[in-house]
Simulated scan of single mutants.
Amino acid sequence: MARVSQEHLDARRRQILDGAARCFARNGFHATSMADVLTEVGLSAGAVYRYFRGKDELIAAIAAEAFAGIRGAFEEASQSTPPPSPDVLLGAVMRIFLEERIPGGDSRAFARLIIQVWSETLRDEHLFQTLAAGYDGMREAWASLVEAYRANGLMRADVPADHVARTMIAIAQGFIAQQALFGNVEVRVIEDGLRALMSMETQSRS
């Protein structure tokens, strides 16, 4: 029997994850069965279960991959001189996360999937650990960016880097929640809003 190449295995795993993400985004996590996923990806049960034992493993893999991709984008940005401003960076990452994650997909549906993933962490310890690790990685990535901003004279130094990191993550989470609940929120909205807030000048009180 011919050996299956790693490239083939990786491509098959990618096919399964993309198909599952489309299903979950379209119909919701609980309303989607593994049979739905099999139909979506056009593979046999044996082919899919070789990689994932069920929906919980699929959703955890989707979440972990998303965090890894976003953290990578932030870490790459921190190496630029000067690094892109928060409005530009967050806008770029949100486009990748919401608009490009499911080719031709519905960004509002995918935002709703993210909200479902968050709620699943309340009952699924493994998924909680996956998201907690991703959140900690995001904090570290943003903290590195803060240090890069300061090294380039772009940000004041009297606020802890982790406070800035948590705030930027909260902005992204809030944007995703708005998209999930109300839709019709273009990424440029968050870019414009951040740019306006960044332009404010604080006046010292007498």
Results as ranks from 00 to 15, higher is better:
Ala47Arg: 12
Ala64His: 09
Ala60Val: 02
Val41Ala: 02
Arg50Leu: 12
Ala61Leu: 00
Ile62Gln: 01
Leu43Ser: 05
Tyr49Phe: 14
Val41Lys: 02
Arg50Val: 05
Ala63Cys: 09
Val48Arg: 00
Ala64Val: 04
Tyr51Val: 04
Lys55Gly: 10
Ala60Ile: 02
Ala68Phe: 03
Ala45Gln: 15
Glu57Pro: 00
Ile59Lys: 07
Tyr51Pro: 01
Ile62Asp: 00
Asp56Leu: 12
Val48Thr: 05
Ala60Trp: 01
Glu40Trp: 03
Ala45Thr: 13
Phe67Tyr: 14
Gly72Lys: 00
Ala47Ile: 07
Tyr49Lys: 10
Arg53His: 15
Tyr49Ala: 02
Leu58Phe: 06
Glu40Pro: 07
Ala66Ile: 13
Ile70Met: 14
Ser44Cys: 03
Ile70Trp: 13
Gly54Arg: 06
Ala64Glu: 10
Arg71Tyr: 05
Gly54Asp: 12
Gly69Ala: 06
Ala66Lys: 11
Phe67Glu: 00
Ala45Arg: 15
Lys55Asp: 08
Tyr51Cys: 06
Ala66Asn: 13
Gly54Gln: 06
Ala68Tyr: 08
Ala47Glu: 12
Glu57Gln: 13
Glu57Cys: 07
Tyr49Trp: 10
Ile70Leu: 13
Ile59Gly: 03
Leu43Asn: 02
Tyr51Ser: 11
Gly42Leu: 04
Gly42Cys: 06
Asp56Cys: 11
Arg53Ser: 15
Glu40Leu: 02
Glu40Lys: 08
Ser44Glu: 05
Ile62Val: 11
Gly72Asp: 09
Leu58Ile: 03
Gly54Cys: 08
Arg53Gln: 15
Phe52Glu: 03
Glu40His: 03
Ile70Glu: 14
Ala45Asn: 15
Lys55Asn: 09
Ala64Leu: 10
Gly54Ala: 08
Ile59Arg: 11
Leu43Tyr: 07
Glu57Trp: 01
Phe67Ser: 05
Gly42Pro: 10
Phe52Arg: 04
Lys55Leu: 08
Ala66Trp: 10
Ala45Pro: 14
Gly69Trp: 00
Ala68Met: 04
Gly69Tyr: 01
Gly69Asn: 04
Ile62Glu: 00
Arg50Thr: 11
Glu57His: 09
Ile70Thr: 15
Asp56Ala: 15
Arg50Gln: 14
Val48Trp: 01
Ala66Tyr: 09
Leu43Val: 01
Phe67Met: 01
Ile59Cys: 08
Leu43Gln: 03
Ala64Asn: 06
Arg71Val: 14
Arg50Glu: 12
Ala61Cys: 06
Ala45Phe: 13
Ala64Ser: 12
Ala63Asp: 01
Ile70Ser: 14
Lys55Val: 09
Glu65Thr: 12
Tyr49Arg: 12
Ser44Arg: 04
Gly72Ser: 06
Asp56His: 14
Ile70Val: 15
Val41Phe: 04
Asp56Ser: 14
Arg71Ala: 13
Asp56Trp: 11
Glu65Ile: 04
Thr39Ala: 15
Thr39Cys: 14
Ala61Arg: 05
Ala63Met: 06
Lys55Thr: 12
Gly42Asn: 08
Leu58Arg: 01
Phe52Gly: 01
Val48Cys: 05
Gly72Arg: 03
Ala64Gly: 09
Ile59Val: 15
Gly69Asp: 07
Gly69Glu: 06
Ile59His: 06
